[in-house]
Amino acid sequence: MSMFLYIAVMAGVTYLIRMIPFTLFRKKIKSRFIQSVLYYIPYAVLSAMTFPAIFYSTDNTVTAVVGTVIAIILAYFKLPLTVVAISACAAAFITGLII
């Protein structure tokens, strides 16, 4: 199978999945239930993606847990995204050097 065909199929399917609802859906949703679901979806998606995957994100559960705790503390005090992300990475890295 040619590499070009594989990449074309991957890219094509992925694009259509993104494009169709975003481009074709024009109505304002009126239902209070649907609006509520859409309001909660972003937080629910991010939370489901983060937990428990974050604990396996650094090859070592201990460094990942330390990074997670640091991220949660800094996020609780509403620090910017970049600061939280880099601090979590630094905390995991430093913990890895110590243990």
């Binding site: 937080y43 991010l46 939370s47 993606m49 983060t50 995957a53 974050i54 994100s57 650094t58 090859d59 070592n60 460094t63 990942a64 990074g67 997670t68 991220a71 949660i72 800094l74 996020a75 609780y76 509403k78 620090l79 910017p80 995204l81 600061v83 939280v84 992300a85 880099i86 601090s87 979590a88 990475c89 630094a90 995991a92 890295f93 890895g96 050097l97």
Partner: peptide
């Protein structure tokens, strides 16, 4: 060094946490 690339794996999740925790608070 593998120790650095391994630690970089947490960055995206750290960003997700920075979005959901203030909302949860």
């Amino acid at each position: 060094p593998a120790s650095l690339t391994a630690a970089m794996g947490i960055m995206l999740y750290g960003m997700f946490i920075a979005i959901i925790i203030p909302a949860a608070r």
